[in-house]
Nucleic acid binder design. Structure first.
Lengths: 330, 330
DNA sequence: TTGTAGGCGTTATCAC
DNA sequence: GTGATAACGCCTACAA
């Protein structure tokens, strides 16, 4: 292992000079600095992260918590975060909460053991007080994605899910549908409840029948959408449209409709939420509400970076715009 | 920050006893051990990872390199790796190579700066000598997924892509198709070439026309499959079936076929490769060659863990079984 | 069974 | 500008 001592020896200086030179600190003669840099490069030197962390008490790592990194929903968010992290030199440390943030101690490990400099938490369903106290106490900046907390001191990035759901439902109404069902996601999630509320508001506003009658539940995966759609078809044969709380479940719904021998959108209209990459390639291509996922990830890291660079952490509440993507499923 | 010194003080012992107790080493009285553990828990102690790494020269981290973590293809592989890592206590450190492993120094950083204990490299297209020398020199165990190197000392996990491609093409032939096209992936990848070889072997064997005539190229994303399929439809109106090198591109191909007013599989048959989660939900559901992705990830970590626990690193060459999943697109 | 001392590689604080 | 020296928190001989 090449250390600053080795470089110091070769350069004929002391280790501290090497450290200063390599960290671009003042007080190193330009010529010696150049020499040191040349030697470091030649010897293929990389500073030992553990040693540096130990003494600086900074890890250069940002923790990222989400339910399950393998959900396609997170892909673009991660890309957005990485884009910024690559520029600023931070390393991303991922951890799955499996919607179980409170019971696991992954958060503790990230904070206390790994000493992350900041944290991004995507779409958790935990109560804020249960996890923010430690972060606050240790003054670790964090930003929540897909949450909108009342607390003004917490950095939140979100979209207006209620409005998005409302507009999706309205879109079906305007297409002439009068019996519109809804497939929800996990009821523990804030976004689920907001989308449900948006759906109900629309149903009520348009004077359609009891808003609770046609609500079915899933947990955001294809199979659940398939199942729920079969139920809808069985229980409410008069239904002609469905607003599904995310695209994955919408895929399942599409399949159930096809299998029932119906044609989308002629016999049944489907509208999703998220606009995953694949949604442009379903048959028919899915009409859906697009979340700016890449931007969500990008902004989260930008906020964090700025705070880490000394800017005050005043709690930014960022509501990003969504977009109704009209394709052919509704 | 709670350190072993704090615990030592509270327990009335020296820090070294605390260290030994918490690491389950021999030579600590049962009663003091229990006391120490109780205090550690009460004080919410977590060992400082940086300090531990510095002295043990082990990071407890496994590096994972892949082209792009946001590709749905990797999701199950990651899940498989995490399953094992969670049990063994290793932390996974992800890094995207963007198919550019040689130019970037992410590998160096992982190895030299972060000091990863082991490495999993998924589907890289680099030449082995360019990156294995450092790993060998530093005696860092690594396993390659989606590669099958001649080198007997390298741990490889792969499937018989050539055979899979051959059987996929054969399946189309047996369904009566005689003009069968192929959409390849990135030609830099080993798997791409193997699948192409399998396709060509089949075409030749069945005495069909010049195997090169109906080969079109993409780069493993939906849009490329869409584009290539449009070309096929234009250039080879006599074609009635296509073997696509991965499912993502197959989704795009399906769409192009639909848009051309053709019905799958009646007018045109499509067979993919991978069996992504979504593939059961396309319209019609996609016939494809399933890779045991979860297993690939799981096995890779198991191999690594065993080596890290002292087992000899003799180069395991693991060829996992694939499976033809027959749905309705062919 | 427990304690002492030294060191892992780096940065920071002083002197020089 | 440069160079000793002392941390950072932990582990591990070796001594007691």
């Amino acid at each position: 292992m090449v250390t600053i001592k080795d470089i110091a020896r070769r350069a004929g200086v002391s280790p501290s000079v090497v450290s200063r030179a390599l960290n671009n600190k003042y007080g190193v003669k330009e010529s010696t600095k150049e020499l040191i840099e040349a030697i470091a490069k030649e010897m293929n030197y990389y500073p030992n992260a553990a040693a540096r962390r130990l003494v600086t008490r900074k890890s250069g790592m940002i923790g990222v918590m989400m339910a399950d990194i393998s959900e396609p929903f997170y892909a673009q968010i991660i890309k957005g975060m990485e884009y910024v992290a690559n520029q600023t030199g931070y390393t991303l440390l991922f951890s799955n909460s499996y919607d179980n943030l409170e019971k696991t101690d992954v958060l503790q490990k990230m904070i206390v053991a790994e000493n992350v400099d900041g944290l991004v938490i995507v779409g958790s369903n935990v109560q804020d007080k249960n996890f923010t106290w430690l972060l606050r106490k240790k003054k670790i900046p964090f930003v929540l994605i897909e949450r909108n907390l009342d607390d003004e001191n917490v950095n939140c990035i979100w979209i207006d899910n209620k409005k998005g759901a409302y507009l999706a439902t309205k879109f079906l109404f305007e297409k002439g549908h009068r019996e519109i069902a809804h497939i929800t996601g996990n009821l523990q999630n804030q976004v689920t409840m907001e989308r449900l509320a948006g759906y109900k508001t629309a149903i009520s506003e348009f004077g359609l029948s009891d808003p609770d009658r046609r609500v079915f539940h899933g947990n955001y995966v294809c199979q659940d959408g398939y199942q729920a759609m079969q139920d809808i078809l069985n229980i409410h044969p008069d239904c002609t449209g469905v607003f599904v709380a995310n695209d994955s479940m919408a895929y399942g719904a599409l399949q159930a409709i096809h299998e029932a021998g119906l044609v989308v959108p002629r016999d049944f209209a489907v509208i999703g939420f998220d606009d995953l990459e694949f949604s442009a390639f379903t048959n028919p291509p899915l009409t859906t509400v697009r979340q700016p996922r890449y931007d969500m990830g990008k902004k989260s890291m930008e906020i964090l970076t700025r705070i880490l660079q000394g800017e005050e952490n005043n709690g930014i509440n960022l509501c990003l715009p969504f977009e109704l993507i009209i394709r052919n499923s509704a």
